[in-house]
């Protein structure tokens, strides 16, 4: 089972690498924000897989925290791009 986790983790890393193309070159800021949001959500799953691969339960807490932070970051970015300010 450990080998399966390793393979899945590497494949997720590959999808992150592919989305990095959109984040780096994607025309316009919105493509980049969308790609970064996608990378963040993939990272959540990658952290859970790492937690099982190294058998460290601490990684699940980190992935929960990362999920919340990624969501808030995306929302703040969207709001900033929409209005030019985050608080209003």
């Amino acid at each position: 089972m450990i080998e399966v986790f390793l393979a899945i983790g590497l494949l997720i890393a590959l999808t992150i690498l592919l989305s990095l193309y959109r984040a780096a070159l994607g025309p316009g800021v919105f493509n980049r924000v969308a790609a970064i949001n996608v990378i963040g959500t993939k990272t959540i799953v990658l952290l859970v897989i790492i937690g099982y691969y190294f058998e460290r339960p601490l990684f699940f807490d980190i992935s929960l925290l990362y999920a919340v932070l990624n969501f808030i970051g995306t929302l703040a970015f969207a709001k900033y791009l929409e209005r030019g300010e985050v608080w209003s």
Partner: peptide
Amino acid sequence: ATHAIMKA
């Protein structure tokens, strides 16, 4: 999040 980016 998808909806927020799209609306912006």
